[in-house]
Design a binder for these strands. Structure first.
Lengths: 147, 147
DNA sequence: TTTCATGTAACTTTGTATGTTACGATTCGA
DNA sequence: TCGAATCGTAACATACAAAGTTACATGAAA
C-alpha cells in the first residue's frame, strides 16, 4: 500500500526551517525533501491553517515557523494534516449486516483503537524541539566520529 | 488509502466455515463475503500453507478448517497473510543520508514500533474460538430482542 | 514594471489491493 | 471412461489514493 508520508515530510521541512534564518521558499524545501514545490505548498498550507507556519509571497518571500517549537507536537501536526487514516489494514465492510462479520469487526476495531490511541499519545509526547535536539546530538556524534 | 482487508475477510470466512458441516467451496465463501472465488482461493491458499485449512478438489471438494479454533489467533492469521504493513503512514525515505531526516525517522519509527507491538499483542490474545463465542452472544442477543 | 514568490485548480503518474478471465489439474460419481 | 465440479494459478483489468506536474492567477519587492 502506498503510504502517506506527509507527516515525515513536514517534520523534515520544519526542522530545516528551524535551522535556517529567514523564510525558505517552497522550491528550497522541495529540493531538500526531493519532492515538488507545489506539493510543499499544498502540505504547508495545511500547517498554515493550523497556525504553525506563515507564508509570504513575492521577493524574499517563503515559509516561516510561527509556532513555538516546544509546543508543537507530532500529534498537532498529524491533526493539522487532517488526521489521515493510521492503518493500512481494515475491515472489509464498515457496517455489515452479517452477525459473524460484526463480531469480527468488533474484535479488530478494539485492537486498532488501542493501538491508535497509543500511537497518538506517543505523538503527543514528542515536540519539534525534541527532534531538533535529537538532530543536534546526531550532528555532534558525526563530527566526533570524523575527528 | 486503500486498506488491506484480507484479515477481516479470512476471519469472516473461517467463522462461517466453523459454523458449517463439511467443506465449503470458494464460490460459497465468496458469496457470503461478497467477493470473488479466485480471491478466496488466493487468500485461503496462504492459510493452507500455514496449516490452518485444507482444500480438496473435485466433486464435493472445498475448504475445511484443520487447525484448533482455540489455538489460532489473529496474530497467526496476520502472519499467515505475510505480515502485511500495518500502517498507512510512513517515512518518506527509509535510509536517508540527511541527519535531519534520520532524526525524524527515528522518532516516528519508535512510535510506530510501539503501536505495532501493542496491536500484535492484542491480536495474539484473540483466538478464533473467542470470536465464535462473541458471535454466539450476538446471535442470542438478537433473538432475545426479536422475541 | 519586472521578477520572484505563493495559491490553487486541473490533470497525470504511479503503486497497490482487489476483481476478472481463462484454462489446466484433480477428484468424484454415473 | 466420461463429464461435471472444484481447486490452482497465471495473466490481465479495474479502482482508488498519494504524489507529482502543469498552468496560470495573485501579490510583493526591487
Amino acid at each position: 500500500m502506498k503510504r502517506d508520508s506527509r507527516l515525515s515530510s513536514v517534520l523534515h521541512a520544519l526542522l530545516h526551517m528551524a535551522d535556517h534564518d529567514g523564510p525558505m521558499t517552497s522550491e528550497a524545501l522541495a529540493c531538500c525533501m526531493s519532492t515538488n514545490p507545489v506539493v510543499v505548498r499544498r502540505t504547508m498550507g495545511l500547517l498554515r491553517k493550523a497556525g504553525m507556519v506563515s507564508s509570504e509571497r513575492g521577493h524574499s518571500g517563503g515559509w516561516r515557523i510561527t509556532g513555538d517549537l516546544n509546543r508543537i507536537t507530532l500529534r498537532d501536526l498529524h491533526d493539522a494534516l487532517g488526521e489521515p487514516a493510521v492503518f493500512a489494514i481494515g475491515n472489509k465492510t464498515e457496517a455489515p449486516e452479517c452477525l459473524v462479520e460484526q463480531a469480527v469487526n468488533a474484535a479488530l476495531d478494539d485492537a486498532f483503537a488501542e493501538a491508535e490511541a497509543l500511537l497518538l499519545s506517543r505523538f503527543q509526547n514528542v515536540t519539534l524541539a525534541d527532534l531538533a535536539a535529537n538532530f543536534s546530538r546526531r550532528f555532534a556524534e558525526r563530527r566526533q566520529t570524523k575527528d
